[in-house]
């Protein structure tokens, strides 16, 4: 059955874990160096723009992880292979943390630029809604006792969430044009100068590596839990 195949790959990757974590750390430190020391402050926002280097990658990965989650739910419906559920279940908490980081750093960044901790900016609001979707998905696994049922329900929920992201995006943007005072749009990435692009890309790469490491760890945990479950049955 499919179940055996990925096991071998994941056991293989498991041995690479320490190296993977190390490279993530190195890339992260390089990214930090570039974003803090080696890039000019923005002419308008000054140094507070450096928060962008950790806010924007977190937002990208938050959305990226949810798309991955929803994609594995769709694949589970099509191929009925239990592994896809494990993928979705492993990525969910990581994606939720990235969304949380994006929210917190976004509001910290907002303080100097708009003077308030929270502004109903279109992207921040969508990020907040995305956080709700993550919490809903994670809670499905906890509150439904019978695990086969929980797998089916959470898969359905993942897909529902995914269908709703464009709808929510569309309505929040439209709503934003209705109430949007002009100044707030400044939070959108300021005119990216080449010297600012490099730290952003390095940090994004570091985030992706970190996501991969955590995903691998979470997946291994889920697979072991499956084995323990099956062993006790």
């Amino acid at each position: 059955m499919y179940f055996k195949l990925p096991n071998k790959i994941i056991d293989e990757l498991r041995r690479w874990l320490p190296i993977l974590s190390l490279t993530t750390l190195i890339v992260f430190l390089v990214g930090l160096y570039f974003s803090i020391l080696n890039s000019p402050p923005d002419y308008l926002q000054g140094d507070s723009m450096r928060i962008m280097y950790i806010h924007v990658p977190a937002a990208w990965l938050a959305l990226g992880s949810y798309s991955f989650l929803a994609l594995s739910c769709v694949c589970w419906f099509i191929f009925r292979n239990p592994n896809f559920n494990l993928f979705a279940k492993s990525i969910a908490p990581i994606g939720a943390i990235f969304t949380l980081i994006a929210l917190v750093t976004g509001s910290i960044w907002g303080k100097p630029t708009w003077g308030t901790w929270w502004a109903w900016d279109a992207r921040l609001t969508s990020m907040l809604i995305l956080f709700f979707l993550y919490v809903a998905y994670i809670m499905t696994w906890q509150s439904i006792v019978n695990k086969e049922l929980a797998a089916k329900i959470s898969a359905a929920l993942g897909v529902i969430g995914f269908i709703n992201i464009p709808i929510i995006k569309f309505s929040v943007d439209w709503w934003n044009t209705l109430h949007q005072p002009a100044t707030i749009s400044k939070l959108s990435a300021p005119s990216i100068h080449i010297s600012m692009l490099t730290p952003l890309l390095i940090m994004t790469f570091a985030y992706i590596l970190f996501l991969a490491t955590l995903f691998l760890i979470r997946l291994k945990i889920e697979i072991i839990e499956q084995k323990i479950l099956r062993a006790n049955k």
């Binding site: 507070s48 928060i51 950790i54 806010h55 977190a58 980081i101 910290i108 960044w109 100097p112």
Partner: peptide
Amino acid sequence: YMNGYGVYVWSAYFFTLISFIILY
């Protein structure tokens, strides 16, 4: 100090790093 923005920049970075470390 980062001419005034330091507290925000560092608190944001601190929060991110701490959550990464705890998560890992």
